[in-house]
Simulated assay, not measured.
Amino acid sequence: MDEQELQWIQANVELAIEQLGPLADAGFGLNRESVEWVEGFIERQRARPGFDPERVDGLVGVLGSFLGACVAAGAGGRWHCSDEGGWGVLLPDGSTAFPFTKVRKQLRDGVEGGESIASFYRVAVDFIATGGLREPGQG
């Protein structure tokens, strides 16, 4: 693992909490409610005049770091860099969630296009990490 990249991710998480926390309801942090608030924030950004979903790399970095940290905290996961997908959160069941990809998709397509970071969080934390999506009879 590249320690410098992990430090960049952590700095982005801190920036998200510092900048978005005062705009959100009380209790903004690494939790489900904050992910839901950030989903709305993304939708508000998409509605702004002149928004260009192809010019959002900085926003993807900050919000993807925050989403990944929330998933890691909620599921007991940890950051992991894979050869095929880049940085993601390794979940207790061995699968990997890719928050940067999901944030970029929501910025591009929006909730109305089927992309939701809140749903991504719920599925990763409540189902995948717990083995809840396994076929009956699988161990």
Rank of each mutant, 00 (worst) to 15 (best):
E33Y: 01
S82T: 15
S82C: 05
D93K: 05
R46V: 06
G77N: 04
I42G: 02
P49R: 10
L23R: 14
R78K: 15
R46G: 11
V89M: 11
G110Q: 12
G50D: 11
G74N: 07
E39C: 03
E33V: 01
A75Y: 10
S82I: 06
G29N: 03
R44I: 08
R44L: 13
A73G: 04
F100H: 14
F41G: 04
G40N: 10
G88Q: 05
D93H: 10
L20N: 05
T96M: 14
T101I: 10
T96N: 11
L107M: 07
H80C: 09
L67P: 05
G21T: 02
G88E: 13
V111E: 12
A69I: 04
D93N: 15
F66L: 13
L23N: 08
L67D: 13
R55T: 12
F41Q: 14
L67N: 03
G85N: 14
L59D: 04
D25F: 01
D52T: 11
D52C: 14
G74S: 03
G29C: 03
E39R: 03
G86E: 03
E43Y: 06
T101F: 11
D52F: 10
R48A: 15
F28N: 00
W87C: 03
G27K: 01
D83G: 11
P22S: 00
A24F: 01
G77D: 11
G77I: 06
V62D: 08
P22W: 00
P53T: 08
E54H: 12
V71I: 14
S34G: 01
H80W: 08
G61T: 03
L107D: 00
R48H: 09
A26Q: 10
G61Q: 15
G68W: 06
R55W: 05
I42W: 01
D83T: 12
Q45W: 08
W37C: 00
A73I: 07
P49E: 14
D93R: 10
V60C: 07
C81D: 08
G85E: 09
A26W: 02
A24T: 00
P49N: 11
V62C: 10
F100T: 06
R46N: 13
L90Y: 08
E36S: 13
V35A: 11
D25E: 15
D109Y: 15
A69G: 02
A24C: 09
G58W: 11
V103F: 00
A24W: 01
G61H: 14
R108G: 09
V38M: 05
P22T: 01
R48N: 10
G61F: 12
A72G: 04
G76F: 13
G94Y: 02
F100L: 12
E39W: 02
V38Q: 06
V38K: 02
A73M: 05
V60F: 04
G76V: 10
A97N: 08
G21A: 09
A97S: 15
L91W: 06
P99H: 04
D83N: 14
L91G: 00
E54V: 09
I42Q: 06
S34A: 13
A24S: 15
L90M: 10
I42N: 02
P49T: 06
